[in-house]
Every structure is written in C-alpha cells, then in structure tokens.
Design a protein around this nucleic acid. Structure first.
Lengths: 142, 142
DNA sequence: CCAAAATAAGTCGCGCACGACTTTATCACA
DNA sequence: TGTGATAAAGTCGTGCGCGACTTATTTTGG
C-alpha cells in the first residue's frame, strides 16, 4: 500500500511541524503560501495554486484568512482585471522569515542524515512526476 | 522541502484513486477502513485508528456514515462496555472485495515497475519510522 | 465588431483532520 | 470497598481539500 504510506507519512510529518507553526500562528498550508511568496512575491492566485498544488477553492478562503491576519494583501491587477495579485505585508515578510527557519529546525531534530534526506526527496519527486503522468493519461482516457 | 513533496504526492495519489472509489461510493479514508476490516474483521475503534493513523474524533463520524451506508455495524463489547466493535456487513464485505481490486488497477495504469514500487515503499516506511521516532522525542522534550 | 469560448477567481457543500473537551466504564490500590 | 487515575469512544469547532457551479473579464473567430 504505497498510497497509504504516503498518506500516513504526510500527516505525520505535518504533525511534526504543527507545534512550531502554532508559535507563528500559522497552519501548514498558510506556511507553504508564505514560503512561496517569500521566494517570489506578488503572485496571482492561480500561479500560487500551481506551485503549491492547491485549487482556487482552497486558496481563496485561505488567503482571505491570511489577509485578515495581516500577512498578505490581495489587489486586482490593472492589466487584467480577472487576476488578483497576492503580496506579503511587512508583517508577512517577517513571519515568512521566521517560518523559513522551521524546516531546518525539524531536520536537525529528526536526526536524518543529509544523504538520506536528499535520497528520500529524490524518490518523492520522481514519484510525483510518475503520478502526474498517470493522472494526465487518466484524463486523456476519460 | 521534503514535507511539501510528501504533502503534494499524497494528495495527487489520492486524486488518482478518487474516480475508482467514486464508482464504489467510497471516500479514501472509508476505503482504508474497509481494507483494514477485510484484513481483520471485528476491530475496536482505537485499534482501527492505530493501524490507519486516525484519531477517534476522525473515525467516529466516519464510521457513523459507513454504518448509515450499510457497510459496517458498530456494537458495544460485552466484556468491556467502553469498547465498540466494528464489523463488516455482507454488503461491506462485497464492497471491500471490490475495493481491494483498486490498488492493483492503479499500479497497472501508472506503469510503475515492480522494483521501483517496492523501492519507493521501503523508502516511505523508513521515513515513517523516522518521523515517529522524532515525534516521540519531541513529546518527551515537551 | 460582436457573440462564443476560454480564463481567473470565488462560492457552496460535504467530508475529513485534529486540538480541546466530555462522558462512561474499567482499573489500581490505599 | 470506595475513590482517584486511566482508558475508550464520542462531541464540538475550525481549517483545509475538492467537485460542482457561478461571476466577471479577456480572448478569439466569424
């Protein structure tokens, strides 16, 4: 059961993150959004969703909550009135910098070797690529 | 970002399962419950949760829905009135048998080699073990 | 130039996930 | 033997995740 092990490992890993994120008043998906904006500020909702593998119907309410928390701003693009540009506030930038510390902190605590970390990461990236291929074939078949 | 890749791969894999499960009127967690009961019928809620990495506050409503769908029965144990024993109905047993076909079906479609499947599985099981160790250490630290 | 298709974001409903808490039953032991 | 600790299941509230649908804007083909 490959799928179950993915499912269980993913949730377990997020549970490991949770105490650190709670201190920053962040949920795991909100943490991902902050890191993505830290890497590349002023993204559209769709772009954000593409990199984080989230749909707009997940992101829209999430971004609304983050706006309410004063972490990001959402403004309509003037070139294309359909697009909404998400950007970090000053508070958001500071919080993102703090959030960026967490993964290293977890890695240190978990006592994983640099090597097995990268090996596992490579395996997962390959797996994701295979899943995406299979998903596209399934879509073509339907 | 090991954690993000786990998160994304897990959701992507479940999305791959979804069309097959919809035909059986099952969600992914319900599918896991059926397979677990097929392997070992008449389990307590806690036992089920331990093998599937779910809390009782997730399982209780889920099992209620499965009971309403006629897939399982829930009866209080007579030896220990705290325990609730979950068992497959006849419908549930048939559905579980159909559900058991799905993973092989996915594996076939995804075109993964037997070897890379087992290699990935081993990597994930090792990772889960490491996460569990780290989680226990964190709990001790707190 | 304009109607139809495509695109971007959002709303709605339902089912998990899970922290915090409650209820009920069993156990431990002074 | 009673009483506090422990254990099993469940309830409640909040936040995703996502299928189905809506709204508003741009693009495109006739």
């Amino acid at each position: 059961m490959l799928c179950f092990n993915l499912y269980a490992a993913s949730h377990a890993f997020i549970r490991l993150y949770t105490p650190h994120l709670e201190r920053l008043d962040l949920t795991y998906p909100q943490f991902l959004v902050l890191l993505s904006l830290r890497d590349q500020d002023r993204q559209g909702v769709g772009t954000l969703g593409a990199t984080l593998a989230m749909e707009t119907n997940t992101l829209s309410p999430l971004l609304k909550r983050m706006t309410a928390a004063g972490l990001v701003t959402r403004v309509r693009s003037q070139q294309d009135e359909r697009r909404v540009v998400v950007a970090l506030t000053e508070t958001g930038r500071v919080r993102a910098a703090q959030a960026a510390e967490v993964p290293g902190c977890i890695a240190r605590d978990s006592g994983m070797t640099e090597e097995s970390y990268h090996q596992t990461l490579k395996t997962l990236q390959l797996l994701r690529a295979q899943i995406d291929t299979a998903a596209q074939q399934a879509r073509r078949g339907a």
